[in-house]
Amino acid sequence: MTMMKTARIHGFGDACVIRYDDVPRPRPGPGEVLIRVAAGSFNPTEAALRAGLLQSFFPVDLPYVLGWDVAGTVAEIGAGAKGFAVGDRVIGRLDGGGAAAEYVRAPAAVLTAAPKSIPLAHAAALPVAGLTAWQAVFEHGRVARGRRVLVNGAGGGVGGFVTQLAKHVGAEVIATAGPRSTEAVLRQGADHVVDYTARSVSAALDGPVDILLNLVPLSPQDAAALTPVVRRGGRIVSIATPIEPPADAGVSAVHLVARNDVADLGALVDLVDAGAVRIDISSSRPLSDLAEVHRLSQAGRTRGKVLIIP
């Protein structure tokens, strides 16, 4: 029996519950492929899953192998799986987890060809954050040329993609970011950066925005303070705290939970290969450091996308 390394949890709790286990290498089932993992990437929501905070609406069975983002090479093809051959470079969002491992089996239907223009490992940063950004910007935010867009939380992994996609279609982008992220956010195309550690966003703006894309958790007070910056007829899209504008504000609002959409992911890959979207990797860590990555994220000490290399 061939074994492989994984990072998984046997119970919920702090980062200490992450264990590095040797388990049998899986075989692909019908409609699945086996991927030799080049990299996964860390998403802060995974820390909430590990802590047990998502069980009410995203229950998982234990033990559970972490990791939703995967980039790798097809190693084996299950019966009926179509569209790929052994050796193909692929990426995908694995809603059942499993990417924090040397190999993972995945439905062929959720995978698409990896970008050709970047290292395969770097492409692992794209699925979860990229899909969230794509749907926030285009599907719900309806960002277009000439729109004035506020990206609240542009320094995170989703924020980098949101900023680039909004600029790609010709919007004016005002981004909030801390001092550690300012240079990266400007490289990604933001027209203006507001240091939220130095002054309030509302005080920094010189007029209302058409669209607010909120990417960070907010207290009720902070959410209420942000709402007036959106003009009447404008839109709020939040991937974190739901924001409810007053009924008389004339502002629409949606709380976005991104879906797994391979067509959207393929469109993102095309933009990466066209040079329109860059993938900003802040660091790469071995699988054995995943618990430490969780700790650093919860302490607010990570920026952008962190790759996890098996």
Rank of each mutant, 00 (worst) to 15 (best):
L94C: 10
G234D: 08
L186E: 14
S56W: 14
K305Y: 10
D69K: 01
D264N: 13
V60Y: 01
G155W: 06
V23Q: 01
A48G: 06
P44M: 05
V151H: 00
G52E: 02
D289F: 08
L271T: 09
A71G: 07
A133P: 09
P228M: 00
R93L: 15
V216S: 07
G141T: 13
G92S: 08
V162R: 00
I211M: 04
V143K: 00
A267C: 11
R295Q: 13
G207T: 13
V251N: 06
V272W: 09
A99T: 08
D280N: 04
G160L: 07
T132L: 03
L212Y: 07
V209Q: 01
S238R: 00
L186M: 12
P217V: 04
A81E: 11
R142T: 12
S252K: 02
P30D: 10
R142N: 10
V128T: 10
P119V: 05
V251F: 12
R36M: 13
G78F: 07
V151F: 09
P59C: 02
S283W: 02
I279C: 04
L296F: 07
G300A: 07
L271K: 03
V277R: 00
L215D: 10
A101K: 01
T6V: 15
P63H: 02
P59Y: 05
G92M: 12
R147K: 08
H140W: 09
K5L: 15
R278L: 13
V293M: 07
T176N: 02
R50N: 09
T302M: 06
H122V: 12
L296T: 04
E32R: 00
R105N: 12
R36S: 15
A204V: 05
G31H: 03
R89C: 10
A47D: 15
V23P: 06
L268H: 08
L53V: 03
F138G: 04
H294T: 10
A175P: 10
F42H: 10
Q135P: 08
A121E: 15
G130P: 04
A267Q: 11
A223V: 11
V277N: 02
D280M: 04
V209W: 09
I279L: 14
S41K: 02
L215T: 08
G29T: 05
L66C: 11
K167E: 15
